[in-house]
Design a binder for these strands. Structure first.
Length: 808
DNA sequence: TCCGACACAAAAAA
DNA sequence: ATTTTTTGTGTCGG
């Protein structure tokens, strides 16, 4: 029997807030940990609305290589909110492979179909390219004949290369996202070049000037045409237009891969490489044409061979639903037609080609459809947050991540490896990267083990009198040794509560002004400081809910989101003498953790008070929650100019004069640099250069920061809160260290007494310090549990149920 | 509630 | 390697 860290979190809500929005909690341990989460709310604390939910959808997230991988499990009824371990396990393993389904295309590329409600993939990921639904021919509108009245076969070859995923037997597109349709046409029985050397006529006898394609969309319910729009790569900055009629010559449709590769080519030499796929030059055809030939009629010299409809979207105005429940379905139509001279009859209303013809006034020519193909029904999802997944983390899907190990069997689990992020860019101090990789890779197969050996995890929420307390979070799975990528020396814990939708973090943290917290002022050429594993790192983001509580009983509209990232502490060494937490943002909510304390609540915790003197600066991580002082601390650079705290402080607080001071300092340093360079060795010069760069950076960041225009009062306020928080956190981390030491001691004693197998409990350098085999006592399911209700929010499947609440 | 507009961010392209 | 471009989607306000 071992004991494991417990994290306690207290969230103080503003008065007026009475409930919580359902959401998902994550408890994340190391790089490959599994967390099972229960959200328990005492019955007497339930506020109207919270317990309305009859269904809860537990989710399981595995954190691997800096990314979450989600596993859904079948929903459970809240009649029995206690998620039975076995059932949980079983359902997890059942659906694990459903997140992304990958099929192999004819050209060796893959089409990975995934539900954007469940997983978010980077915008430029190659996984966004995929072959969509096939087209099927519609009865032809015309036949075409050559000079000898022979019928010339014509076959469209359309393909969707982006924008539609096959999910649960439906083809799903997104209103906000681009899709791509490409098409060429083939001339069975004729060589494409030869085809161009002859003349053609419609079965009505009209001479065909040239061939062209059109893209259209129809709503299947009312059979009405739907507008499409096309953007340029500049999107909002460029023009919008209806997908044009493309004049094309017959050709083979380039493979999907070619369309991918050619999708955003600007480089001239690269464009040349693709030229032959997409263009026919009249001179390529040769001279031996018949007297009258269609080639001569083509209006442009490079003649398109492929109609590429890229960056297409359904017009924003289209209604996507018939009723609140029922989706309208759409079909895309690819039409091959021809231009003929003059204005011609419109097509009868009963024809599927109705309104697909088009008279071009400028050219005095009419586009007359000849053949067309259509997609099966398509469902277009709108902008509702319910059509997007919860804001977790982007799955990293660089090509190299999955190219190296192509999945052999396309029907099996797709290979969706996620890569550790930006590893290359920083010095990796962590000792056993190799181990991490191999082990993380295995982590999926370890799920059952981890789960069965895991700890139950409980969040208890008591939203009484404006306070909500989350306490006693036990780790479901502390981990096997594999879960601790930082090696034996440390363990990383983090907890995140993510709201299910729109979350006004920025507004909320800084009430009056918008400060950008998600993107710290950070020059891209600044090297990110390395993460020192012996350092205590602690960062929180939290905010007030700004939604005023409505009188409406049915609506629990308050939202809370907090992210508690990376409590890293050393478990084998004595705590560092100095433990500087990362900078805090000003908090209205107060969040604290207690590690390894089952008995006392947050309120009970009174850390030993220490002196108020500031700690010497240490390296800090630049994070999303970074703030100016993170960047302006020159001590962060080992050979940079040292600056005492008072100076740093004043530079931060006194915005204006700080700039001047910095400039002065920079000047001085630059002078020094200048002197030095004249008489220093190359290495010294290099060093000085880097110093110079840092100075430049400093200046730039300062300039940028000046644009945040924070008033002095605000700065004072922020600083005060910050220093308070830092002090508190420092105390806390010291306290936590001592607690952890106690725990380890206890554990060691236990191990000794219970005669552990294979655990070399004696060696302090061993990874045993972090329990590698975790048997956690089952959660005490007592009367307390009966009075509780688990509310773990799961995204709706198939858009059947509407979101019951929205953040405002 | 829906939508235009702007914003952020991550991978491709250069 | 770094910078620019592209595009999925978060967000705000009308």
């Amino acid at each position: 029997m071992s004991t494991y860290p417990t994290i306690k979190v207290l969230v103080k809500y503003n008065s007026g807030d009475k409930g919580c929005k359902s959401g998902t909690f994550f408890l994340n341990i190391g790089s490959a940990a599994i967390i099972k989460i229960k959200l328990l709310i005492k019955e007497e604390d339930l506020v109207k609305g919270i317990n309305r939910k009859k269904e809860i959808y537990p989710e399981l997230y595995v954190y691997e290589k800096s990314a979450f991988r989600m596993y859904t499990i079948d929903h459970v009824n809240d009649e029995n909110i206690d998620i039975d371990d076995d059932r949980f396990l079983a359902s997890v393993s059942n659906v694990e492979k459903d997140v992304i389904k990958t099929l192999r295309n004819a050209d060796g590329t893959t089409s990975s179909h995934f539900d954007k409600r469940k997983v978010r993939i980077a915008p430029r990921s190659t996984l966004q390219f995929k072959i969509g639904p096939s087209f099927t021919p519609v009865v032809p509108n015309h036949k075409i004949l050559d000079d000898y009245a022979q019928i010339q076969e014509i076959k469209l070859e359309p393909r969707i290369d982006r924008g539609f995923d096959f999910i649960d037997n439906d083809w799903i597109g997104y209103k906000r996202n681009y899709f791509t349709v490409v098409t060429s046409f083939d001339t069975p029985g004729s060589d494409h070049i030869d085809f161009m050397k002859k003349a053609y006529y419609l079965d009505s006898g009209i001479e065909i000037k040239y061939f062209a394609t059109k893209l259209a969309a129809k709503c299947l319910e009312d059979d009405k045409l739907i507008s499409l729009v096309q953007h340029t790569a500049k999107r909002d900055k460029g023009p919008q237009f209806a997908p044009p009629i493309h004049v094309i010559a017959p050709a083979n449709l380039p493979k999907h891969q070619i369309i991918r590769d050619a999708s955003n080519v600007r480089n001239e030499s690269k464009m040349k490489k693709f030229d032959s796929y997409f263009f026919l030059h009249k001179e390529d055809v040769g001279p031996d044409c018949e007297e009258r030939n269609v080639l001569a009629n083509y209006p442009s010299d490079p003649i398109k061979k492929v109609a590429r409809y890229e960056r297409i979207q359904f017009a924003s105005s289209i209604a996507l639903k018939k009723t609140s429940q029922q989706n309208r379905r759409f079909s895309l139509l690819v039409v091959l037609g021809c231009f003929v001279k003059g204005r011609h009859h419109t097509i009868s209303q009963t024809s599927p080609y109705h309104e697909l013809d088009h008279y071009d006034e400028q050219k005095d020519m009419t586009f007359i459809p000849i053949v067309m193909e259509k997609t099966p029904p398509l469902i277009i999802r709108g902008r509702s947050p319910s059509n997007y997944c919860q804001q977790i983390k982007v799955m990293h899907t660089k090509k190299s991540d999955y190219e190296t190990e192509p999945s052999e069997d396309p029907t099996t689990n797709p290979h969706i490896d996620k890569k550790e992020r930006k590893r290359q860019g920083r010095k990796d101090k962590q000792p056993n990267t190799k181990l991490i990789h191999s082990l993380s890779h295995d982590s999926l197969s370890q799920i059952p083990t981890l789960l069965t050996s895991g700890l139950p995890s409980t969040f208890e929420i008591s939203p009484t009198s404006g306070n909500m307390r989350i306490k006693n979070i036990q780790l479901l799975s502390s981990s096997t040794e594999t879960s601790f990528p930082r090696g034996a020396q440390s363990e990383s814990l983090s907890v995140a509560y993510l709201s299910n939708s729109a979350t006004p973090i920025q507004e909320s943290i800084f009430k009056k002004r918008r400060l950008n917290i998600s993107k710290p002022v950070l020059e891209s050429n600044l090297e990110e400081p390395t993460d020192d594993i012996t350092e205590n790192i602690f960062s929180t983001i939290s905010f007030d809910e700004r939604t005023p509580l409505k009188e409406n009983n049915d609506q629990m509209s308050s939202t809370s989101v907090f992210l508690l990232k990376h409590v890293t502490y050393c478990v084998s060494e004595p705590p560092p003498a100095v433990a500087i937490p990362r900078t805090m943002l000003p908090n209205k909510m107060e969040i604290s953790y207690c590690l390894n304390d089952y008995s006392s609540s947050f309120i009970d915790y009174q850390p030993p008070s220490t002196s108020n003197r500031r700690q010497p600066a240490s390296r800090r991580l630049l994070t999303a929650s970074g703030n100016p002082s993170d960047l302006l601390n020159p001590a962060d650079w080992s050979d940079g100019p040292k600056m005492v705290d008072e100076q740093r402080n004043s530079a931060f607080v006194q915005e204006g004069s700080g700039d001047i001071e910095t400039q002065k300092r920079n000047e001085q340093i630059n002078r020094e640099v200048g002197e030095l360079v004249t008489r220093k060795s190359l290495s010294d010069q290099l060093r000085e250069n880097s110093k110079k760069k840092r100075q430049q950076f400093q200046k730039q960041t300062r300039e940028k920061n000046s644009f945040t225009r924070v008033s002095n009062e605000d700065l004072d306020h922020i600083n005060k809160i910050k220093s308070d928080e830092i002090e508190k956190l420092r105390e806390f981390s010291q306290w936590a260290e001592s607690e952890e030491r106690k725990r380890l001691k206890k554990q060691r004693l236990l191990q000794l007494s219970t005669e552990s197998d294979g655990l070399s409990s004696g060696t302090s350098t061993n990874s045993d310090l972090i329990p590698t085999e975790i048997r956690i006592p089952k959660e005490v399911k007592s009367s307390k549990m009966k009075n509780t209700l688990g509310v773990i929010r799961k995204k709706r499947t198939k858009g059947v149920s509407k979101p019951t609440e929205r953040g405002r």
